[in-house]
Nucleic acid binder design. Structure first.
Length: 268
DNA sequence: AATCCACGCAACCGCCGAATT
DNA sequence: AAATTCGGCGGTTGCGTGGAT
């Protein structure tokens, strides 16, 4: 099981991609589909390492990628999910259609982590779990960002990537997702959470508690899939399913994505 | 106007687990 | 069952850009 040599190969192009390379990659993938990254460069005629091609595709060229302008809703969700999951960027990205793990990671590292450092007390802090300072880069691999002395731990799951091609509908969702700003202002006060139900999960030995609440009352019915209203069968789903709610396949979906906005997770 | 500095983003690196042989 | 390969993830680095001095 030695490390694979991967791309530390001489003679391969590195650094920024050219428009020509992008074009070659896109057209190759359009014709042959994703996958086989190791041999893709050769087959496509790219002088790049496979991983580099994959990264370029996933983070930049893939259809449906949204870039920049992270909305308030998205930001809010990132913060919440990060609190919940730690640095599971791919998992977080799975809940943000059109966003990539890399983008979210960058956004966190540049914007939110700083903001969180400053904002003790601002807005989100009356919760014990509020804002661990950005995860001290792990000691021990993936031990994630745990506010010490807490009883909670980021959930470890496998990432459910929403590789979805993003649907136009999602855009609207982001705009409308939060119909009531006031709600957001209060949302961290968990007591005020518009809870429509709560569940306890025991996932991989970790006991979790959630409260779920509709993100917005009406707001155009964001997303549409409110999993598990109390008493519905969705309630028993495990966390992956829960977080992957609405995760749909490549083609999927329409609006299957539960979307931002249709639920809110908060630590009990 | 020129230089310096801080920031944001794209890309790379290394590790890990899953799949395959 | 063990070895090898592949794909994916998270952390880190380096470059380009914009703002401040």
């Amino acid at each position: 099981m030695g490390r694979k040599p991967c791309c530390a190969k001489e003679g391969l192009n590195r650094g920024a991609w050219t428009a020509m390379e992008d074009e070659i990659l896109v057209s190759y993938i359009n014709d042959h589909g994703e996958g086989k990254w190791g041999s893709l460069p050769k087959r496509a005629g790219l002088n790049r390492c496979g991983k580099s091609c994959r990264l370029r595709w996933l983070n930049y060229l893939r259809p449906g990628i949204k870039r920049g302008n992270i909305s308030d809703d998205e930001e809010e969700l990132i913060v919440r999910l990060h609190r919940l999951l730690g640095n599971r960027w791919s998992l977080i990205a799975g809940r943000l259609p059109g966003r990539t793990d890399n983008e979210i990671k960058n956004y966190w590292n540049t914007t939110l982590s700083k903001r969180n450092l400053q904002s003790h007390g601002a807005g989100c802090s009356n919760h014990p779990q509020a804002k661990p300072p950005p995860p001290p880069p792990q000691a021990g691999g993936e031990a994630h960002a745990l506010p010490e002395g807490t009883s909670s731990s980021p959930i470890r799951t496998k990432a459910l990537r929403c590789t979805t091609t993003v649907l136009a509908a999602a855009e609207g969702v982001h705009e409308q997702g939060r119909a009531a700003p006031e709600h957001v202002a209060e949302e961290d006060q968990l007591g005020d959470c518009l809870s429509i139900g709560s569940i306890d999960l025991d996932l991989e030995g970790i006991e979790l508690g959630f409260m779920m609440s509709p993100w917005s009352g009406d707001g155009g019915g964001v997303g549409g899939q409110h999993f598990g209203a109390p008493g519905t069968e969705g309630m028993g789903n495990d966390l992956e399913e829960l977080l992957g709610l609405g995760v749909v396949g490549e083609d999927g979906n329409g609006d299957g994505h539960g979307g931002l906005g249709d639920l809110e997770l908060a630590w009990l």
